[in-house]
Design a binder for these strands. Structure first.
Lengths: 218, 218
DNA sequence: TAGATTGTTAATCGATTAACAATC
DNA sequence: TAGATTGTTAATCGATTAACAATC
């Protein structure tokens, strides 16, 4: 099947399917209909069937979908069995949090190095991964065939870091910095996170619910 | 104007506008056209004008928009001058990272307490905010009129934590746990973050670019 | 077989883009 | 005034939902 023209909305829902199917499997439920799955996903049966059919006919008429089979199909579609080599740059608060918190190997990655410029923490480890000098990052990425980077450096260092990594062959960026990685890196895959944006939209929605925002207009 | 029916897509773009306008202001640029702004936003002039017009006519024909004025309008629309009292629950890796990393007071919040159940860290501080015993969270939230919670607890503790907080009057949740906060809390405003989902979609997109995923199908 | 539920096409809805008259 | 650029309406595009024949 042709995966070229699958919409971004569908892709964004795949991890959700995956999560809920994993839960169902843990509960030993081994079949589910698009209707039931849509209740869990808080979408519609139509959407579930449309989504899954982008990748193939995983269901059986009159029966529904096999939970373990569907879960595995989605894992394969996402490529979770991969181990893309990844580095994390910037072992400050958020970087350390991310490095220690994420289950990279269940998500298609292997964290092979952490980099920082703070001499005091060089040589330390987070989850058995060493913190190394950021000056050596370029060589390290080339030597180890690193494909992905998780950016947790300050904004001021962001552009330079991305350039260095990109030139060292890194083509996938999960970017927590406030620097916006735009279209300057043609064949790169980028996700700009912007945690602050989330808090701001939450704030807006809270004002809305509270009906307070009128005061602001005066 | 009626803000009831402004689409979620528009709201989600507001923080982006705000960020870029802040940058422009820092560069002492004080006017901008929808065309130029759309280049920065990587959208279209039409969309910029549509978006801004949801909230009022901030522009001037033949001139464009005043950068400082527009920036301030958006800050007001988002309600960034607010100081919603907020607590963070779960001072593990990611919780500590978030607590130390975010500039809450510039985003409409004031972090007034951090809660955990690990006795060893109780009494410690992160950015001058004390880590307190989670057993006291309900009383604390009532007494201090807390409206928002940032959830960084393990999945197993998530539901109980949300219930407790909701009953103590907290109606806004920024949820980093793997527990999905659904429609069970009618008047609550919720953002489920799911960092893992982002990494999974990134992985998919990387497979796509690399053209590798065919192997998985065999 | 009858009931259930898929895969898929068609209809609807919402969001984005284009166009242009109004006006600074 | 002429040029630029908005605010706003209309056209397009894409994504979601509904419908239903196919079939297990």
């Amino acid at each position: 099947m042709n995966r070229e023209n699958i919409s971004k909305s569908v892709i964004r829902r795949l991890p959700r399917y995956y999560r809920f199917l994993t839960e169902l499997e843990e509960k030993n439920i081994d079949r589910i209909s698009s209707g039931k799955l849509s209740e869990i996903m808080r979408s519609t049966a139509s959407q579930v069937r449309q989504d899954l059919n982008c990748f193939g006919g995983f269901g059986h008429q009159g029966y529904g979908y096999s939970v373990p089979k569907l879960r595995e199909e989605i894992a394969n579609i996402l490529g979770l069995n991969r181990h893309y080599k990844a580095v994390l740059v910037g072992a400050g608060h958020i970087g350390t949090g991310i490095a220690a918190h994420m289950n990279f190997d269940k998500l298609g990655y292997e964290l092979v190095g952490i980099f920082d410029n703070n001499e005091e923490i060089l040589g330390a480890h987070i989850n058995k991964v060493e913190i190394m000098d950021v000056d050596n990052i370029s060589k390290f990425c080339r030597d180890n065939n690193v494909s992905a980077a998780f950016l947790c450096v300050p904004r001021s260092a962001a552009k330079k870091t991305v350039d260095t990594l990109y030139n060292a062959g890194v083509k996938c960026f999960w970017n927590f910095t406030h620097y916006f990685i735009g279209g300057d890196y043609p064949d790169a895959v980028v996700e700009n996170v912007h945690l602050s944006d989330m808090l701001m939209t939450l704030c807006y929605r809270m004002n809305e619910v509270n009906g307070d925002y009128e005061h602001e207009d005066e």
